[in-house]
Structure formats: C-alpha cells, structure tokens
C-alpha cells in the first residue's frame, strides 16, 4: 500500500511538472490583463525544438534555451498584436495555437536526420534523468518528491519565488495593478504597455519550458501532439489556482493525480469509467469559477480574475 501511494505521488509530480511551469507563466501573463490562449502552440513549439536541439547537440541547457526562445517569439507576436495593435485577444491566442501546432508538426517532419527521412519521430536523445537526493529520497512516501529530475526540483524553487515576486515585491504590486486597473496604474506612473509586454513574454517563456519538460523527460522523444491538450488544461489550472502562483501546484496535482490514479485503476480493473474521472477537473474548475465570482459579488474583495483581463488599453480612450 505504501509503495502504491509512493508511486502515485511520484507519477503525479512528474506529470504535473510541465503543467506547473506553464500555469505559472500564464498566471503572470493574465495578471497583467493579457489572456493568452496560444499555450498549446507554445508548448508544442517548446517540445519539438527542445527535442531537436537535444538530439543534434546533446546539450540539455541549449535545448531549454532554444525552447524558451520559441516561447519568447510566439508570445512577443501575441503581445504585439494585442497590446500595440489592440487585436482581439481570444482570436490572437487561437491564431498562435493554430500556427504553433502547425509549425511544430512541420518541424517534427523536417528537423530530423536524413537517415530518418528528416522525421524526429521515433528517435531518442539525451534527456533529464531522475536524481535521487541522498537521505531525503529514503523517507517513506514523501521520498517520492526527492527522486525526480532537475526540472522538477527547479519547480519546487520556482513556485515560492513566483509567489514572493508577485505578492511581496513592488514590481509584483505594479504588475497586478496593471491587470486590475490600467488607468490607475498609468496615472501612478507605471507603464502599462511595458509591463504587459514584459510579462506576456516572460510568461510565454515559462510555458514553452513546460513543453520542453514533456519531450525531454516526461514522455522523452517527439510525437505529434505530444502535449495532448495540456495547453488547454493550463487555462483551467490558472482559474483553479485563482491566479495565485502558490496554488498552481494544487491544480497540477489534481490533473496529474487523476492521470496517475486512472492508470492504477485500469490495472486494477475498477468500475469508474476513465472519461468520468477525467471530467472531474473541468467541472471542479467551473465550480471554483462560480464560487469565486459569487464570493466577489458578496464581499467586494477581489479573489480571482484580474479585472482588466482581455481588455486592451489605450490612454486616449477613457
């Protein structure tokens, strides 16, 4: 039993890592008032380029840098369209997803070696291996947390840092005020445009890192649609964590955990059909959204969605 719990925790954390990176990225983007629905495309581009670079150079560091630069470019396009050109954020985000999905699939059939007719599918490369932390990994049950890869350990550090920066520093306050009330922020001398650009791009880089974790560790290698809709799940996770980086882990555990448990249940031949189990996180997300909205209307205190989310800003029209 203890071994079972331990293995479920291990799988949950591993499945959740890519989700946490992407969720924290999107939380930062949305907190400044920019909704980016291009996550699926950015994660796929991160995954395909990270794997291609790892395959050809053998350098994991370089892989991560290239993956992040993909997130940088795609989210910069989104930022330019939504912030400077005031385009519709939903349509722009969907376009990023279309383009990123198409481009990743294209690259997956072009960046491989000639002997594999330029395909990346079916190849193996260097990858992140699990590193057991001495002593800590021997703790019963919780030891599972300390037998993970470097990116997961990075996630343990990222979560508190991202929370601290957002809620305990002046910069964090500024970025939240841009998402809550851009006019007020502007009047206080904060550049709405710069803040939104910066965190849309930084957020995008983390999203692509999440994609890179998939192709370099969780399911090593490149397959078409390796993300399996994770980019969309992240949109749900941002709501589920009520736009707070510290809570990003809960949602990731929920989705990752259901993956892990489902796998076990299938082996055990249990009666709960998988789709019903899979539906639960989405329904829970809607419930959280309804609850947050209801509480806000009662108490006037803002808990969740930034007030200016998906609203473009131009100083001239008030």
């Amino acid at each position: 039993m203890m071994l079972l719990v331990q293995s479920i925790i291990a799988i949950t954390i591993r499945a959740g890592t890519s989700l946490v990176y992407a969720t924290i990225g999107e939380i930062y983007t949305e907190r400044t008032g920019v909704l980016n629905l291009g996550l699926e495309g950015m994660m796929l581009m991160g995954a395909v380029t990270a794997f291609a670079v790892a395959y050809h150079t053998g350098s994991l560091v370089l892989s991560l840098l290239v993956a992040m630069s993909m997130g940088l470019v795609l989210s910069a396009i989104h930022a330019f369209l939504c912030i400077t050109m005031r385009a519709n954020q939903v349509v722009s985000g969907l376009s990023i997803t279309l383009f990123g999905t198409g481009m990743a699939s294209f690259l997956g059939q072009r960046l491989g070696p000639a002997e594999n007719s330029f395909y990346l599918v079916g190849l193996t490369s260097v990858r992140f291996n699990r590193i057991a932390v001495p002593f800590l990994s021997d703790i019963p049950i919780l030891g599972a947390l300390f037998n993970q890869d470097i990116m997961t350990y990075g996630m343990y550090i990222l979560i508190p840092l991202a929370w601290f920066y957002m809620f305990k520093t002046k910069h964090g306050l500024n970025l939240r005020s841009v998402g809550e009330s851009p006019h007020t922020a502007d009047a206080m001398g904060i550049s709405v445009t710069k803040t939104r650009y910066l965190f849309t791009i930084v957020g995008g880089m983390f999203v692509s890192l999440g994609g890179a974790h998939l192709s370099l560790s969780y399911t090593p290698g490149w397959t078409e649609n390796i993300t399996g809709g994770r980019g969309w799940i992240v949109i749900a996770l941002v709501i589920f964590s009520m736009w707070n980086p510290a809570r990003a882990i809960y949602g990731a555990l929920l989705f990752g955990g259901i993956n892990a448990i489902q796998f076990r249940l299938q082996i055990a031949g249990a009666a709960i059909p998988a789709p019903v189990l899979n539906m639960f996180p989405y329904l829970a997300t809607i419930a959280v959204l309804v609850l947050v909205t209801w509480l806000e209307s009662k108490g006037k205190k803002r808990l969740g969605a930034p007030a200016a989310l998906a609203v473009s800003y131009m100083r001239e029209d008030k």
Binding site: V91, S92, S95, I96, L98, F99, G100, T101, G102, M103, A104, S105, F106, G108, Q109, R110
Partner: peptide, 13 residues
C-alpha cells in the same frame, strides 16, 4: 507535412 495548411492559417491571421 499537411501542417503547412495550419501554418498558413496562422500566417494569414
């Protein structure tokens, strides 16, 4: 790759 179609959709948008 048939994905050229998707890439073009994005490039038009």
């Amino acid at each position: 790759p048939s994905a050229v179609g998707l890439v073009m959709q994005g490039m038009i948008l």
